[in-house]
Amino acid sequence: MENPTTWKLREAAASTFEQLGFFFPDEEPYDEQLEAPVAAVARVRFRGPIGGVLELRLAGDLLGPLAQNMLAADVPPDHATCLDAFGEMANVICGNVLPALVGSQAVFDLEPPEVSTDPQAWPRFEEITAYAVFGIEEGRAEAVLHIAEGAEVVAS
């Protein structure tokens, strides 16, 4: 049985990819999707009753198609725009998962997303609170939640 935090992260990420990214998030990715190399990482830092980082990883050739879907464009836009689109996905997932974890009265401040195409841009988290992975087209998306402060207030 999946723990509630993981389930809420999965829900927030899946609905964001569906509604904002116009991608079908497959909850049972196949081997080729799982083997695709990570192409971009986005991090959103948050402060509130709990503090930490939401990380979104995109693997395979999805950075261009994601921005193309969002903009209803015929071809992928320029690189900076692709990164902006991906960062906004991370921002939206983060904003949705946090109140789901600690209740709808809680107020959070989110920092603007930081985006890199270097999979090693940031040191790995020492501890991961929740992780969700989806197959998307020929690649995948991974959402990682790291709660650094206040983990004890998360309802289980």
């Binding site: 609905s15 964001t16 569906e18 509604q19 904002l20 921002n91 939206v92 983060c94 904003g95 949705n96 946090l98 109140p99 789901a100 709808s104 009265q105 809680a106 107020v107 959070f108 989110l110």
Partner: peptide, 26 residues
């Protein structure tokens, strides 16, 4: 138009006479 899901903040937004659309939106 925001990812904001905090009822506290959404109530403040509405009290200031603004409407609210939650991201992700269709």
């Amino acid at each position: 138009v925001s990812t904001e899901s905090s009822e506290t903040r959404i109530n403040q937004i509405r009290a200031a006479g603004a409407d609210f659309v939650h991201k992700p939106f269709t």
